[in-house]
Simulated scan of single mutants.
Amino acid sequence: MGFAQLVIGPAGSGKSTYCSGLYQHCETVGRRIHMVNLDPAAEHFSYPVSTDIRELISLDDVMEELGMGPNGGLIYCMEHLEDNLDDWLDEQLENYFDDDYLVFDCPGQIELFTHVPVLRNFVEYLKRKNFTVCAVYLLDSQFVSDVTKYISGCMASLSAMIQLELPHINILSKMDLVSNKKDVEDYLNPEAQVLLSQLNRQMAPRFHKLNKALAELVDDYNMVNFIPLDLRKESSMCCQTSTTASSTGKMLM
C-alpha cells in the first residue's frame, strides 16, 4: 500500500513552494518522499521531480498544436492524463515500492478541484491502486485579510473537500510574508457571531440572510479550519506533517 498527498489550491497560493519545503523537511529528518509534477504548464522546480506529466503532455504543445488558450489547454492536458491513467501512469507507478510516499504538485486551476471531475477520477484511480490519499489545500494567508475573503476561501476549500471526498488539511501559506499576524490569527478559529457582524457591516442589508447562512455553515459543521504555515520555522512544518500523518497513517516527521 502506497501513500499519496495531493497538493491543491488556487494559482499563486504557494503549492510548489510548499512542496519544496516539505521535501527539504523530509530530507532533514531522514524521510524519503517522491515528488510528482501534475502541472503541464510548470517550468521550474526547486525540488527533484521523480515523475512529470510533461513527459506525457505539456501545455505549450497543446496551445501550439491545437490553438487553445491556457485555460482550455490545461483542462485538455488533464483530461488527456485521465485517458492515460491505465497506461502511462501505471508504468510510472511501477517505479515505486508499496510503502512509498508520493506528493502530487497539482495545477492551480480552481475548476479542477471544484467541479471538473478529472482530479476526482484521479483520486479514485489511486485508491484502486491501494494508495492512502489525503488532500492538502493551500490558501495564501495574505488573501485572508478580511472577512469576505475569508468566507470566499472557506467556500472554495469546502467545494474541493466535497468534490474529492478525501481527508482534507487546509493550510494558510506564506505566513512569513504577513506583516500583522493578528489579522490572520483572528480567522483561525472565528466565532460565527463575529463573522456575521463583520459581514453585515461590509455588505448591503439584502445580503444579511445569506451572510447568516454562510457564517452558520462555517461554524456549525466545523469542517473548514486552517493551519498557519511559516516555512522558515521547522516547528511549523512539523505541525503540518503531524496533521497530515493523522490522515494517511504515514509519519513524515
Rank of each mutant, 00 (worst) to 15 (best):
I8Q: 09
A215R: 01
S157Q: 09
S197F: 00
Q202V: 00
Y96W: 01
L59T: 01
F97I: 00
L59C: 05
V218P: 00
M63Y: 01
F97A: 12
I162Y: 15
C154Q: 10
H25E: 11
S50G: 04
E216M: 08
C238Q: 13
D39Q: 12
H44V: 15
I57L: 03
I162P: 00
M35H: 07
A156F: 13
K129I: 01
M223T: 10
M175G: 09
G73V: 01
C77K: 02
I53W: 05
E27G: 10
S46V: 03
I110H: 04
F207P: 00
S236P: 05
G2H: 14
G9I: 10
D60I: 00
Y187N: 05
E111W: 04
L56M: 12
D100L: 01
S13G: 11
A11C: 11
Y18K: 06
S197Q: 13
A160K: 05
M161C: 11
D176G: 07
P228F: 03
V103E: 12
M223W: 12
R232F: 02
D83R: 13
D39H: 11
Y221C: 03
S235V: 07
S145E: 15
G2Q: 12
V133H: 13
N180A: 08
S173Q: 05
F207E: 13
V144M: 13
Q5A: 04
G9Q: 12
Q193L: 07
G14W: 06
Y137K: 08
F207S: 13
N225F: 10
V62D: 05
E65S: 11
K209V: 10
D90S: 12
E216Y: 06
T51A: 15
A215Q: 05
Q24K: 15
